[in-house]
Structure formats: C-alpha cells, structure tokens
Design a protein around this nucleic acid. Structure first.
Lengths: 193, 193
DNA sequence: GTCCCGGCTTGCCAAATGGCAAGAAATGCG
DNA sequence: CGCATTTCTTGCCATTTGGCAAGCCGGGAC
C-alpha cells in the first residue's frame, strides 16, 4: 500500500510542500483493521491518530440506560481518534469500531507531538483537523435542533450514502437521534398517517 | 482592571510558569462590551479571541425558517470566538451578543498566531481551549439525543444557573432544543397531564 | 433443504413536543 | 407615571416520535 492518499490529504488541508508532506507521511505506519474490530475501547486512552485509507468506522457510547448511541461515522479520507481522550490523555468514554475491513496510516500521540514540534506546517494541519471536526459537530447539532428527523436522514443520505450501506439501521438511527422504529418508517417515506 | 483572572486562566489550562503567563497576558487588551452589543455579526470574520472577565454572552444563528437558535452560552472565565470563522478566516454563520454588560481581554487572530509561534506553552493552551470546547459540544449532543428535555434543562440549571438569570426563556429553549412553550411547561414542573 | 437468528418492518397506542392564540406579567422608555 | 413592547404562561389540539410486540425476510450453519 502506498501512502499517496495520506500525502494528498496533508496538502488538501493547507499549504504544505509535497516534500514536506512526504516526509511527514513517512512517519505514519500502515495499519489494517478487520470488520467489527475495535480501534478504541471505553476506559482506555486513545493513542492512535489514524488516517483512514479505506473502509468505514463508527464511534459510539453507552447512555445511562445502556443503549448504545452512535456518536460519529468516519469514511476513508478522514482522521479517526477520540479528541478529548487523545489530547487530554484521559480514559475514553467511547468505543471506536470498524464497520468494514479497513486500512489506514497511524501514529501515536507522542509521534504526533514530535511532528508538531518539528514541523510548523504540520501544526496548522493538526489544527485544521480539529477545527473541521468542531465545525461538523456544530452543524450536526444545529440540524438536530432545527430539522425534523426525516430531513436529517435525507441530509445524511445525501452527504454519505456509502456509510448507510455498511451500518445497520439502528446504528444510523441513534446517530440521527431517533429510534430504529422511527427511522424505518422515515425510510419508507410514509408519513405515519 | 487587572488581568489577574487571565493569567490564572492560562495556568489553570496547563503547565505554564507565572512569568510566561504574565508575559502572554500583557499582549491582551482590555475590552468592555455593553449589554446587547454584538461581538460578532454573521457574514463577518471572527477576529477577536476574547477572554471573558465578567458578564454573559450568547452565540446564535438563524435556521432556514428564520428562527434564531442559541448555539452557545459563555460565562466569565471562558474564551469567546467562533472557531471555524476565526481559524479558517471565513465569514461567520453566527452572531455573538452580550447578554449583560461584559468586560474581558482580547487579541486578534494575527496576535494569537504570533504568540503560538513564539510560545510553545501557549500553543498547548490554545489546543486545550479547542479540545475543551469540542468535548463540551459532544456531551451536549449526547444529551440532546439520549435525554428528555426536562433532564437537559435540569442539567443546565445545575451547571450554570447564573446564565438562566440573564437569558430570556426562548433563548434558553432554543439552546436546549425545545420550544419556549415547552420549556415554560417544563419549568413549571408539571407533566402536561 | 431446514432451522435459527439477527435485522428490519409494521400495527397499535401512549407519551412528548409543537403550534397557535389569548391573556397576564414584567420590562423598557419617554 | 403610564404606555408600548417584550416575555412568559396556559389551554386546546395537532404532529411527531417512542415503545412494544408480532411478523417478515434473508443469510449462514448444518
């Protein structure tokens, strides 16, 4: 596997030379994850900054009633890690699990920090990843408040139809903030009378 | 006004010497904002990284139906700015407005970057601010999905009762993701029969 | 093929929330 | 002080969503 996608990703996130991008990419190690395998378990510290080359991943947490709630989906071209746990070095509240077989490139927290230290351009990249995630979360929140469930489903369908192919309905439902029953009806397109 | 709270804030967010903290704080300029005054208008680029010394602030956006939705509340001791607009230098989608008279300390984007460049410890601080906001947003999202409106209101009441004194009900309602009518009933404590 | 199991759908009804409008209360302003 | 405006509450009813349980469907194991 080549790390071409990785270097392109670096360059797509901000101004950085191809040489720099390649140098930085060379620190990442390839990683393969099998379907259903966990990238992170609750209670452990997220220590892997993983660029996803292929495959689909989801993050989830258990609510106080023991129901699992999908907190995020990740497709290839995205960076997968639990922000708070990773940067604060605290136990994660959530799990991260592969929905399909995946491949990617990873570095540890320590390696990431070393790169931040050594490469100013890479600091910009790191910040851009954070800011992008932040903004995505915000707009999801807005939608949760202002849009009805059906519209939120339609948006997701528009934005990432591939994910819906690989995640079971109830997983998608909890991501959208509805029950699987409701999502099933929404899918049908039928306004429940 | 002294910048004591500001230097303490720097030190509370990570390991940094008192001297360093004071040096950095000296770059910030004092700022006073009158009640109802805007710190940021939609369409403009957020360019003020503001530490709030006293007062309360809220951020909001208009949804597609023209209803304003509160996206965040800020109390003294927090940093106020619109993450995506500020770091990406793009027009803001939201407004930031003072709920009460406020005082604080501010620097521009350019000054912040200069500090990041010159002071590694301050970079850590900047990241910590981002990560903290990210985590807060995530847990708010979780609550929005898993907890009923009454529980979300109770949490807010527990976490920041002061804010509720200064924000009108409909503002709080949209923050919680309910209508003002519903929040009024929730407040009353009366399960609507 | 047959059985089993998990994932999805669907009917029925309950609970939560919204929408609207009227009125009461509070607040700001001249 | 008094008017005008906003804010908050409340009743009535519609809509949305949830909860439960039964049934259906499709894929893998044997």
């Amino acid at each position: 596997m080549t790390n071409e996608k990785l270097t392109q990703f670096f360059q797509s996130m901000g101004p950085i030379s191809a040489g720099q991008a390649a140098d930085i990419a060379s620190v990442f190690v390839p990683k393969a994850i099998g379907k259903h395998e966990f990238l992170l378990q609750a209670g452990r510290v997220s220590d892997e900054y993983l660029f996803l080359d292929s495959g689909f991943v989801r993050a989830f947490a258990y609510d106080t009633n023991g129901h699992d709630v999908t907190t995020g989906f990740y497709a290839s071209g995205q960076v997968v890690f639990e922000v708070a746990s990773f940067f604060n070095r605290t136990p994660s509240q959530e799990y991260i699990q592969a929905l399909t077989d995946c491949t990617g490139w990873a570095i540890t927290h320590q390696q990431l920090n070393a790169l931040f230290h050594a490469r100013p351009e890479f600091r910009e990249f790191g910040r851009a990843v954070l800011v992008r995630g932040y903004a995505a979360l915000k707009s999801r929140m807005l939608a949760l408040i202002t849009e009805p469930a059906a519209a939120r489903y339609a948006s997701l369908l528009r934005a990432s139809p591939e994910i819906l192919q690989h995640a079971p309905l109830k997983t998608i439902a909890s991501y959208l903030g509805v029950t699987d029953t409701s999502l099933s009806r929404i899918r049908k397109g039928n306004p429940p009378k």
